[in-house]
Design a protein around this nucleic acid. Structure first.
Length: 560
RNA sequence: UGGUCCAUGGUGUAAUUGGCAACACUCCGGUUUUUGGUACCGUCAUUCAAGGUUCGAGUCCUUGUGGACCAACCA
């Protein structure tokens, strides 16, 4: 499918080994199994790209399966958001399925387990069961209910199903081995009573199967060949296999669970529980707040699906601990947007410039290239007049020769416009510069082909004509956490590292071509960065998000 | 104190399965440039440690060291 020269990750090696050992390629099948209890984040993107990427590579079906066995936490809103995100990332699932589709089958199997003496109803409290479970270093002890008769178990389990009991009164446990070194094998709970309406089965059930009992059997029912999950499920594999052993038929595909390391990212958290906390405690406005590492947050911030896919493929997949630096993600989006984003001019921190030798009522429309990386992007015009805005930081009264921008007595080029020279400036009583007076060289217009226009001038500035500029709200984002690994401190809570300055809202001044920009449109504000139109934007009030800044070697030089 | 897993530059991932440690990002230096952007060039590692097997070890073996995970009626 894809290029053969690319090296394989350990997951692909496992599949290649299976194929080499006779597993037939047309039986390959994968799945992406989110629990609908939150929005997908950038870590999930890795898993999505892994599973759907394998589907593409081997031309195998990939199911989107919602792991919806806990009605206390799961909601339809999350199902919808997850489907939207997977679709937006550009992947097509073979089937949309739900663990809850298998509740009846799971129940029937559980009854069989009871009849075969492999499961029993325990009528102790959660605390008692936990107590008997032992510790990682000490064996567990058997429940007094472990040897209930099959008849009694059957009757009780049926009554559980018929909602005759309160939550917590009984559970169904698999009878495995209370002395196992793997605590998950110490008679794990298969069913608990939950009097909660389920987003799909409503009140049909008041007993719900646990993850371990559900996941492998769901894989089996869908004939998933390879079931990939994160490392913390490694210990669950023994149980996954035990449950499978009880039901698997020799002529069916036996799913294989393998584990990979979750991707961690610097200066953020990727845990649905923690992201939910950020939303609930109003640290951010919503799951799709552009500061969130969610897929929807990144999308709203202006990240493209292509950039996220490239990023996921670049960071790859392995089994070791990791903290992926945000610079990798930022590279991916810059790399894509550099190719496709139209260039425009916008001034975010304005300083007034008056061209003293430019006629007062004159204006002209200058031709500007939309994207020099893309010939087909074409040209637009931008208005020029006597009074302009440039960035405050682009002017200094005096500066050394490393400063290529505007300073008194020196020339710079205005992008797509004229070469100007700073003659003087006026200040307020505190010494703040209010206005710069310049003169322009009328023969130096960009693209005019004159000798003057071809002069080499070191600095080029972006600008807007004050009279024509459109004010717009611009939202600037910084990292959400001040610490590189906010949730990896044993003694401190991740919430202590919230960056109070993660959002700055300013008014920017845009060239008039942006007047008709629509939500999700993206641009490069020249010399500043990539920006997109936020969903809050309207014709009356444009709202832009800063997606990511341009690489800024000048800023780096300044720091030294 | 039991069990499972992991260890390759600042970061992430490779290494034809025992044969010259590679790719991307970052950092630093340079060339080009009407974006201090882009593009291009260059610098940055004795593969956690110590032994062993071998003509040859990142890869196999042994012993350490360091880290992650396991005691939810969560997934």
């Amino acid at each position: 499918m894809s290029d053969d020269t690319k090296s394989l990750n350990f997951i692909e090696h496992i599949i290649e080994d299976d194929l080499a050992n006779g597993f037939s390629k047309n039986k390959l099948r994968f799945r992406f199994p989110p629990e609908p209890n939150g929005y997908l984040h950038i870590g999930h993107a890795s898993s999505i790209c892994l599973n759907f990427g394998l589907g593409l590579r081997y031309n195998a079906p990939v199911n989107l399966r919602f792991d919806d066995t806990n009605p206390a936490k799961e909601e339809q809103e999350y199902v919808d958001a997850i489907k939207r995100d997977v679709e937006w990332l550009g992947f097509n699932w073979a089937e949309e399925v739900y663990a809850s589709d298998y509740f009846q089958q799971l129940y029937d199997w559980a009854v069989t387990f009871i009849k075969e003496g492999k499961a029993y109803v325990d009528s102790q409290s959660a605390a008692q069961i936990a107590e008997q479970k032992g510790t990682p270093t000490e064996h567990g002890v058997a429940s007094p209910y472990r040897d209930r008769s099959v008849a009694e178990n059957l009757a009780l389990f049926n009554e559980m199903k018929e909602c005759k009991f309160a939550e917590g009164e009984h559970v169904l446990r698999a009878k495995i081995d209370m002395t196992s070194s793997n605590m998950l094998m110490r008679d794990p709970i298969m069913y608990r009573i939950l009097h909660k309406a389920h987003h799909r089965t409503n009140t049909d059930w008041c007993i719900y199967p646990m993850y371990d009992w559900t996941h492998g059997e769901s894989d089996y029912l869908e004939q998933v060949s390879h079931s990939f999950c994160t490392l913390e499920f490694a210990m669950h594999r023994e149980l996954y296999d035990w449950f499978l052993d009880q039901v698997v038929a020799s002529d069916k595909v036996r799913p294989k669970q393998r584990e990979f390391a979750r991707r961690n990212f610097s200066h953020t958290v990727v845990s649905k529980r923690k992201l939910l906390q950020l939303v609930e405690e109003k640290v951010v406005t919503s799951w799709d707040d552009p500061r969130m590492p969610t897929i929807s947050g990144l999308r709203r911030k202006g990240y493209t699906a292509e950039a996220i896919r490239n990023f996921s493929n670049t960071i790859g997949i392995a089994k070791r601990e990791n903290v992926v630096d945000v610079s990798l993600l930022e590279f991916s989006i810059r790399e894509h947007l550099n190719r496709v984003a139209p260039r425009v001019m916008a001034v975010l921190d304005p300083l007034k410039v008056v061209i003293t030798n430019y006629p007062k009522d004159q204006e002209e429309w200058l031709e500007a290239e939309n994207n020099q990386e893309d010939e087909s992007a074409g040209y637009r015009t931008v208005p020029f007049s006597r009074e302009l805005y440039i960035e405050k930081e682009d002017f200094r009264e005096e500066a050394n020769k490393k400063f290529f921008r505007l300073k008194l007595g020196n020339e710079v080029r205005l992008k797509n416009g004229y070469i100007i020279k700073a003659e003087s400036c006026t200040k307020d009583t505190d010494g703040n510069i209010l206005e710069v007076q310049c003169t322009y060289d009328p023969k130096s217009r960009s693209g005019s082909g004159t000798e003057e226009s071809l002069r080499k001038v070191k600095g080029t500035l972006h600008w807007v004509s004050i009279k024509h500029a459109i004010p717009a709200e611009v939202r600037l984002y910084d990292r959400l956490f001040t610490d590189e690994t906010p949730d990896q401190h044993k003694d401190k809570d991740f919430m202590e590292f919230i960056n109070p300055d993660s959002l700055t809202v300013i008014t920017g001044y845009l060239e008039p071509s942006l007047k008709t920009a629509q939500p999700e449109d993206f641009f490069q504000f020249q010399r500043l960065g990539y920006f997109n139109v936020d969903t809050d934007s309207s014709a009356e009030k444009l709202v832009f998000n800063k997606t990511v800044g341009l690489r800024d070697t000048w800023a780096k030089m300044q720091q030294k």
